[in-house]
Design a protein around this nucleic acid. Structure first.
Lengths: 154, 154
DNA sequence: AGTGAAACCGCACTTTG
DNA sequence: CAAAGTGCGGTTTCACT
């Protein structure tokens, strides 16, 4: 929440860590041109201030057998607070859902789904439309992932 | 490429590391119920086999000042191999592009873009349509990120 | 189970604005 | 003067053999 101002060194730390978070403190310090100590202090602050919220591994989607990606654009029928809350819970309960955004335009929500194959996706899709009364769903099947989850330009 | 078969222990390792890749070997071994040694061997193999392709940090998009997300659906006009190659290069050269998928349906590409604000996004948008002759672009502005880049269900 | 390396953190000093 | 960086230390913890 603390909208802390990031200087260029902070940004270069974030860039380096996005590219490879397994860097040792020495390597990181060298890369950004700081002493080990002050680099460590900055890193600690970036974590404390909630700029860096965690650390994850990148997985090969093909290797884990989840190389089907679908973007589902959803238009809802109901708009009461309770209905929307149930809808959110219902969507978030599906762990194939990677992204879930409320959007502006001729659709209300955009859901990025990963699945093992078409059958698997259909299971998710059926669940989605059974649990929620939706006005329209348009699914865009991904034919090719040209870029997936790239680093953000910090 | 080696479509290696992952057993339940491998999957629980992947789940644990997706949630927190800063886990020490001992913590990880405890979590998945393995000896430190065999856990380390599995981890090494998962990296060698390309299942785990890297390690990154999760950033708070608001804290880094990139809390505007836009999904741009693109329909292209040209379809020659050279044109498409130039188009890809043009899109990938924009570092605000986080996802870039070729899709099936009434649009050809789906581009997830992050930006500092509307002006910043407009700059990206103008660049996109100036550098490439497109037939149609529909931009869905994200009003709320209910879930962004969740863990994949390994 | 052992070992070398790395993370972690305090401290005194220097630099920059 | 205050804020941030440097260099050096020691202890603890970890990765890897």
């Amino acid at each position: 929440m603390t909208t802390r101002q990031l200087d260029n060194i902070d940004k270069s730390i974030l860039r380096a860590l996005q590219q490879d978070a397994s860097l040792s403190q020495r390597e990181l310090a060298d890369k950004v041109g700081l002493s080990q100590n002050s680099c460590w202090r900055r890193l600690t602050r970036l974590r404390e201030d909630g700029v860096i919220t965690g650390q994850t591994v990148r997985l090969d989607m093909q290797a884990v057998g989840l190389d089907l990606t679908v973007f589902a654009m959803v238009r809802t029928r109901h708009h009461s607070a309770e209905w929307l809350e149930r809808f959110r819970k219902s969507v978030l309960a599906i762990d194939n859902v990677i992204d879930f955004f409320r959007i502006a335009g001729d659709y209300d929500y955009m859901i990025k789904i990963v699945a093992r194959d078409m059958n698997d996706f259909d299971r998710v899709y059926q669940r989605l439309i059974k649990e929620n009364e939706l006005e329209a769903v348009t699914s865009y099947i991904a034919m090719e992932a040209i870029a997936d989850s790239r680093n953000v330009p910090a």
